[in-house]
């Protein structure tokens, strides 16, 4: 815990001390009826970082984000954005953030250019600058050609990009992205990742929520795992993955008779304990991928035929299994 509440620490001094933190939250609580959607979240996001908020649907990710973005009033605790209180200094906080919500936060009936120009005008830019920055952003997000089309003709990926572009007009030092790739196809998803990475190189802090472990792993410098409104783990993606374990190698055998021999070869070559969850399936933790070549050669030399080789990466479920002893789905089932 930081000593921010200790007497004698003036607000200005405190602000200077926390200036390197983009977001600082203590005991955030939000209650909807009988549901404690966010139940005492502490959060420290260093300036300039990409920070991932990982959790299943309904874990409280969006609710937390909305409180930090001044869209929801916390029922308890407090949050600071670059040292400014999100409740008392909401209008300052709003000048420091860009928010891209889960659902299109742009006007469907207007064109991409009109949307951006209106947001830019609202941010106080004169008409000409508003047009210029709208043009620049459309170009940067590869939307120039679609600039004068109404949004109803946009694909999901284009809409997300426009949504993100709209959040960047004021060049905010802190950007909130609520599930930026949910529902996107793999190619568009990779593009969005690239965009997010390049945003971080401009010095912006990015706080994103996601349901995907690999997304948090790919993008985030630090990850907080949230479940039932509580933070269950926090750290770098590597620290997180080490609690989960490594990817698992899966070998599907042609004949069940070879199972015992295959198991023995896997254990001797990889030097780990292998398992036989099904009659023709051998699985083993894959700590060192380089030894897989050797393993496959040994298997061929032993005259064992494989029908399938695959690698199973740890999923969000594995994280929850490791952290809470239950999968996300089980947790959900237990709740309802």
């Amino acid at each position: 815990m930081m000593d921010h509440t200790s007497p004698g620490t003036g607000r200005a001094a405190h602000r200077a001390a926390t200036a390197s933190l983009a977001v600082e939250a203590h005991g955030l609580v939000k209650v909807f009826g009988a549901n404690r959607a966010v139940d005492g979240v502490d959060l420290f996001v260093p300036a300039g970082a990409i920070y991932g908020f990982l959790g299943p649907n309904g874990a409280g990710k969006t609710t937390t984000l909305n409180m930090l973005a001044t869209l929801l009033r916390p029922d308890g605790g407090r949050a600071l954005v670059f040292g400014h209180d999100v409740q008392r200094e909401a209008q300052i906080v709003r000048q420091l953030i860009g928010v891209t919500g889960q659902y299109a936060s742009v006007d469907e009936t207007l064109t991409a250019t009109e949307n951006l120009v209106i947001f830019a005008r609202l941010l106080g830019l004169p008409r000409r600058s508003a047009r210029r920055i709208a043009g620049d952003l459309l170009e940067r997000f590869d939307l120039t050609e679609a600039g004068n089309r109404p949004l109803s003709k946009f694909s999901g990926g284009m809409r997300r990009r426009l949504d993100l572009a709209a959040s960047l007009i004021a060049q905010p030092p802190l950007i909130f992205l609520d599930e930026p790739t949910t529902g996107l196809d793999p190619r568009t998803r990779a593009q969005m990742w690239e965009t997010i990475r390049s945003l971080a190189t401009t010095g912006s802090t990015i706080l994103l929520t996601t349901q995907y472990l690999d997304e948090a792993d790919q993008l985030a410098d630090r990850v907080a795992v949230i479940d039932h409104g509580r933070m269950v783990a926090e750290g770098t993606p590597d620290q997180l993955k080490s609690t989960v374990g490594v990817a698992s190698l899966q070998l599907r055998l042609q004949a069940a008779d070879d199972a015992a021999e295959a198991l023995r070869i896997v254990e001797s070559v990889l030097g780990v304990a292998a398992q036989l969850p099904e009659a023709t399936l051998v699985t083993a933790p894959m700590a060192d991928p380089e030894r897989v070549t050797e393993l496959l050669l040994s298997i061929r030399n032993a005259g064992i035929h494989l029908t399938e080789v695959s690698v199973q990466k740890p999923t969000l479920d594995d994280v929850f299994l490791a952290l809470t002893g239950k999968t996300a789905a089980e947790e959900k089932g237990a709740k309802t």
């Binding site: 000048q95 420091l96 005008r121 997000f141 945003l199």
Partner: peptide
């Protein structure tokens, strides 16, 4: 895709209210 460096949050000087003039401007934009 390029973009200039942004001004860090801690180095910005900001006001916590919207002036009457800005409010009128916002309303007209809306």
């Amino acid at each position: 895709m390029t973009a200039s460096q942004i001004v860090p949050g801690a180095e910005r000087h900001l006001k916590n209210h919207t002036s009457l003039l800005a409010s009128c401007g916002n309303s007209l934009t809306m």
